[in-house]
Amino acid sequence: MAKITAAEVNKLRQTTGAGMMDCKNALVEAEGDFDKAIEILRKKGQKVAAKRADRESSEGAVIAKVNAENTSGVIISLNCETDFVAKNDTFVILANELAELALQYATKEEFLAADFKGNTVADKLTEQTGVIGEKIEIGAYKKLDAAFVGSYIHAGNKIATLVGLSAAVADADVAAKDVAMQAAAMNPVALDESGVDQSIIDKEIEIAKDQLRQEGKPEAMLDNIAKGKLNRFFKDNTLVNQSFIKDSKLSVAEYVKTYDKGLTIVAFERVALEG
């Protein structure tokens, strides 16, 4: 039997993230062959992943990253089954490392196939499922490109947002972060009226008409009053029209114009874990 040293066990642990005993057992089974031990650990992860494939992974960490030029951003959620795992420092570090890598890829599929420390991202997730004993997967994957991109991650890594501005003006980082915090807190359904799905508009008009009928308003008046209520819905639920949370006298669109009169918000992304 090959003699397994503590240094070899530690090297395997550093490479795979598996526990000390799992690494020692894998090296013993592999008779000291390092690459074979990695394969043994990976197969163990695949078995655990198969057993837990139907489990719900509604917990996790949501991470936003922006490139050095502030022209591109990404949000990913690294999902797991329990809040206990989601709050583990090692899990959060892995989520941040994966988000940093995700900046380089346009799609989730490309990202999962990308190299991560010698494995694909997909294989790393399978491996971690074996190590942790919970289903680990990438949930949300959102990209945003703009002249200036800012981000915000809410405490606890449960909500993350990206905001794109039309220009990299002075103090754009402050403006973008404030708007990203707004999006995190107020959960707008769209950037502006044009981005609201027609099915949502139809539903809101119907709800407004039903309320008006219950109030005894004449049928002939319903359309005009319902349109007024719809405008209120747009004000409350579209990002640029919302009252700015730090100064309710301004809309969010008006707030960014305090930095530059031509500055606009061109896009945003928001990901939240509700588990």
Rank of each mutant, 00 (worst) to 15 (best):
R270K: 05
A102D: 12
V256Y: 09
D35C: 05
L162I: 01
K43R: 04
A18C: 13
A167L: 01
G262I: 01
E39Y: 00
V74S: 01
V85P: 09
T107F: 10
L101F: 06
I63Y: 04
S57P: 07
K124H: 12
K87C: 03
V85G: 05
F116Y: 15
K227G: 13
A190G: 04
V28K: 15
I200T: 13
E59T: 08
P188E: 00
K117G: 04
A172Y: 00
Q46N: 09
T16W: 11
E100V: 12
E137S: 14
E206P: 08
D22W: 00
A113T: 08
E215W: 07
T5F: 11
S251M: 05
K261Q: 15
L112D: 07
V131T: 08
E134Q: 13
M20W: 06
M221E: 14
T5K: 11
K249C: 07
N187V: 07
A184S: 10
A64T: 00
V240N: 02
S151N: 11
T16A: 06
L103W: 08
R55P: 11
K135A: 10
A175V: 15
V174M: 06
V149T: 01
Y105E: 02
A86H: 12
Q211P: 05
Y255G: 05
T120C: 07
I201W: 10
R270H: 04
A7K: 14
V149W: 03
T264K: 05
V266E: 14
A253D: 13
A102V: 11
N224Q: 14
M181I: 10
V271R: 02
F234K: 09
R52S: 14
A147V: 02
G262E: 01
D192Y: 03
L230Q: 12
A102C: 09
T129W: 01
K209A: 08
G164T: 02
E134F: 13
G60F: 04
A175Y: 06
A253Q: 11
M1Q: 11
M1W: 08
I76D: 03
V174K: 15
A99G: 10
K11V: 11
K142A: 06
V74M: 04
T264F: 02
S151W: 01
E29S: 12
G262W: 02
P218L: 13
G228P: 08
S248N: 14
V28N: 10
A220N: 15
K261T: 14
V196N: 07
P218Q: 14
D260S: 09
Y255V: 08
D223C: 04
A180D: 06
A37H: 06
D171H: 00
T264P: 02
K261H: 12
G228D: 10
